[in-house]
Amino acid sequence: MHLHKYEKIWLTFGIGSLVIFLVVLAFGAFWQGTHPQSHGVTIDPENIEANDAFKPENLGITKVSDDKYIVNIVATAFNYNLGVDEEGKPVKDIRIPKGSTVLFQVTTKDVVHGFNVAGTNINMMVEPGYISSYETVLDNTGEFTIVCNEYCGVGHHLMFATVEVYE
């Protein structure tokens, strides 16, 4: 098959760029550990409390050590369960000091949900039978909206919470 000279140059340049691009992605994923979340950890969606993380008393934010936190969340249509405060009222906002390392662990009792701390890379699908988790360092202060970004039913847009990162 005949290839025009310019086309050869164009394709060489294009394919070359593509190879470099893929090498950069692979370097990030395999050497720096920036894979998208995929832990393959399963759970019985009808009995999530069998897993310690999702027992009612462990929901919401837990301080593990000085600047380490775990946030456990149960998603259901159309709510994020972040535990209850001292007065027994459901928690809707969590506050975390800047620079903390936070592990978010989310699961669902019913349908598929999304979990996105809007404006950050914390963006996971939450599917029945699996635990979605993402560990990150919260470097920027401000109020972030947690939104369900996968359609879960007619109240989908009413499913939210907030994370405040303070100095």
């Binding site: 809007a118 109020e143 972030f144 939104v147 359609y151 989908h156 847009h157």
Partner: peptide, 19 residues
């Protein structure tokens, strides 16, 4: 890019600044 979700009806998300 600002984090706005797809497939969602009108919502003020509890009045957050982002929303």
């Amino acid at each position: 890019l600002l984090g706005g979700p797809r497939r969602s009806s009108y919502s003020e998300y509890g009045g957050t600044e982002q929303a």
